[in-house]
Design a protein around this nucleic acid. Sequence first.
DNA 1: TACGAACGTTAGTTCCTGCTAACGTAGCTC
DNA 2: GAGCTACGTTAGCAGGAACTAACGTTCGTA
Lengths: 108, 108
Amino acid sequence: MDATLRALAEVRRREILALIRDVELPAGEIAAQFDVTRPAISQHLHVLRDAGLVVERREGTRRLYRVRPEGLTDLQAYLDSFWDTNLDRLKHAAEAEERSRIDGSERN
Amino acid sequence: MDATLRALAEVRRREILALIRDVELPAGEIAAQFDVTRPAISQHLHVLRDAGLVVERREGTRRLYRVRPEGLTDLQAYLDSFWDTNLDRLKHAAEAEERSRIDGSERN
DNA sequence: TACGAACGTTAGTTCCTGCTAACGTAGCTC
DNA sequence: GAGCTACGTTAGCAGGAACTAACGTTCGTA
């Protein structure tokens, strides 16, 4: 999940994901969409592949890439976990407000 | 959403979020849980606050922090969008496989 | 087999970011 | 009001990441 977040926390890589979200594209065509060099995109694709966010399929000399949504499930579960305890959190916040209303009745 | 991902893409900040996911804690108590200096944690809290992932509440000289799950909604919607088009993507993959089966019938 | 096309890889540079040390600030207490 | 507490802020540094240039590799083709 650390690799997933590291991979997503870069604009260029998210742009790459947006490109191959619906269609499968070769590395060269992906690189052509950006103003950086081809090796730079190749490195980004490597990071995305290591994170399990894209899959590579070889077709002759070309390497076709497409998004692998399954690579997001762990992160999605992690984010959902913050909402699981939301009720507990609200309860704690209410208790804290009660306490602050008692001893620290200064400002709002 | 860029700020959200940047904020989450750091182990220390995720550890901080884990600490204040259920309970509200003062900055000093949060810093005490780690082996880095207090200013470092203060900077992390600043990043998390800018990303809207935590909220600050002042109580005397103390500043209490707690997680703000609403700050995750944009990211969650973004991640969900990858699954929305999953059926379309499968269709495209099937078509691509068809094409590769016709002209490039080399390996699997 | 030789050549070209479509890639990935490596070395090196620049820029960003997380950290520490030193300093500044708001609020409570005597 | 002086002093203490609990913080945040700033300057400076070190490690890491994104980029380019040069090179290596695999696959198809003449």
